[in-house]
């Protein structure tokens, strides 16, 4: 659905800076693709190029089979953009905005009017539709941004930090909305730095750092890849852990280190080993009161930090 190949964007003349360097990824139809990266990594630049606002320096982009360079209008017709900064014309009303934007898509006037009304209702702006934008709160603008993004029923929806500046209810609303759009068959390109949000919504992610793609895969595969070669860590929550018990645990084959903690102990074992059953057995037999043993999961955050060297470029 979205195919990006060798995308380059450089600014400036002779001593140009490469904002994007050989960026390639593919988003299949119907996918929710998470696009991650530290601030300044090139997320917004990529999105502005995808949404035909910015011209790439090199590379090809195909959206729904249409080449962005050869047939930008076909791409634009299929695209809904929800920009990071929701900015509108302060002296137009919400409804005027939607009708103005609808006028660019080949939507008949009566139909545009109908859709604008419906969409304002759908996003809880029914009463605000006739108010000028200068009277809108941030949350209302976000909802209007959604309305304009979906008005022409695009196949591909590009969202840049959609949850930015939203309260917890708003964020949940957005998550549910994205899921339901996905159920309708829309392809969603979601850029965010909120890892938890991406983790909840996306199967596949692309991670960009300093203008380069450092990983594109499913979250499962990426975390599994991260886990390979890394020691397994068990968090033991227990009381009455005698020294003898800890010694017994240390003696288990594969265990490399045992450390007493406030809640119990942390056990480190060789990569690829599963020492959980042995550890619990030792504790119980030694007279300790075991509450829980939890194997530490590698999550998106670890992955993100390890791939992006832990900080902004």
């Amino acid at each position: 659905m979205i195919e990006v190949q060798g995308l380059v964007k450089s600014y400036g003349g002779r001593r140009s800076v490469r904002a994007l360097d050989d960026v390639s990824f593919t988003v299949p139809r119907g996918d929710i693709f998470g696009f991650l990266g530290p601030n300044g990594a090139g997320k917004t630049t990529t999105i502005r190029i995808l949404s035909t606002v910015l011209d790439p320096t090199a590379g090809t982009i195909r959206i729904d089979g249409h080449d962005l360079g050869d047939d930008p209008l076909a791409v634009k017709e299929r695209l809904g953009l929800m920009p990071d900064e929701v900015a509108f014309y302060p002296t137009l009303t919400g409804e005027q905005h939607l009708r103005y934007y609808a006028s660019f898509h080949k939507i008949p006037r009566a139909e545009a009017r109908k859709r604008a009304k419906e969409s304002l209702e759908r996003f809880g702006l029914g009463d605000a539709g006739s108010k000028k934008l200068k009277a809108y709160s941030h949350g209302m603008k976000k909802r209007l941004a959604l309305a304009q993004c979906l008005l022409h029923e695009p196949e591909v929806i590009i969202m840049d930090e959609p949850a930015n500046g939203l309260d917890p209810q708003g964020m949940r609303y957005f998550r549910d909305l994205i899921r339901s759009l996905n159920h309708e068959g829309k392809t969603i390109f979601l850029s965010s730095h909120l890892l938890s949000e991406v983790e909840q919504l996306c199967k596949r992610v692309g991670i960009i750092d300093r203008g380069r793609i450092v990983a594109v895969d499913s979250i499962e595969n990426l975390t599994a890849r991260l886990a390979v070669g890394a020691p397994a860590i068990l968090h033991v929550i227990a009381t009455e852990l005698s020294d003898a018990i800890l010694e017994a645990v240390r003696a288990i084959s594969g265990v490399t280190a045992v450390e007493r903690t406030e809640a119990g102990a942390t056990v480190t074992a060789s990569p690829g080993t599963d020492v959980g059953p042995e550890v619990s057995k030792s504790i119980v037999l030694g007279g300790g009161k075991l509450r829980e043993i939890r194997t530490e999961q590698r999550n998106l955050e670890d992955l993100f930090l390890s791939l992006t060297k832990g900080g902004p470029a």
Binding site: S51, T52, V53, K76, L81, A87, F88, Y101, F104, H105
Partner: peptide, 12 residues
């Protein structure tokens, strides 16, 4: 005011 991006992303 930031409205240019939304305008240019339209079929124009």
């Amino acid at each position: 005011q930031g409205t240019l991006d939304l305008l240019l992303s339209r079929p124009v």
